[in-house]
Amino acid sequence: MGLKEVRIHGRGGQGAVTSAQILAIAASKDGKFTQSFPTFGVERSGAPVEAYTRISEEFINRRQQVYNPGYVIVLDTSLIGVIDVTKGISEDGLIIANSTKTPEELGLKGAKAYSIDITKIALDIMGKPFVNIAALGAFASLTGETSIDSLKKAVEERMGKLAELNNKALDKVFALAEDLK
């Protein structure tokens, strides 16, 4: 069926839900069917948040929650230890973590893991730690599930005035991830 599932971990206010939506918009620009939704509930600033994106060549029928994602993005690695970010990840899965530490130092096991200091790039370019969209640059590079061009178009569509700097950060993270491959 070729269904791909992505889980994005963040804290309330970091924009995990927005980035899952942007990923869905981008994938649809690549001609794919998508679904994007958060863990439904009461949103609280700082609390652990999970958001999901499904990507498929065909219309997606299933509506159950995401239990076995192929890809996990961790926007805030202070969540590691609070919750199990690797839970249910498929055997050939891939984790992208925003951190200055290596995946080994973060204790990320059971899947292929990459870490990039996305916060630094966001601070350099935007002066603020907006990592949610920039992190998708690493996703595009390391998974190939969406094109960087579609991502940038989706960011323009969704983020208005904030699109330009976000896309700059997105490009930078994409380039850094390319070097990790």
Binding site: Q21, A24, I25, S28, F33, T34, Q35, S36, F37, P38, F40, I60, R63
Partner: peptide, 12 residues
């Protein structure tokens, strides 16, 4: 339509 399970889902 199912609340949240559909109402809050983004899709094409």
């Amino acid at each position: 339509l199912d609340g949240f399970s559909l109402s809050h889902v983004y899709e094409p």
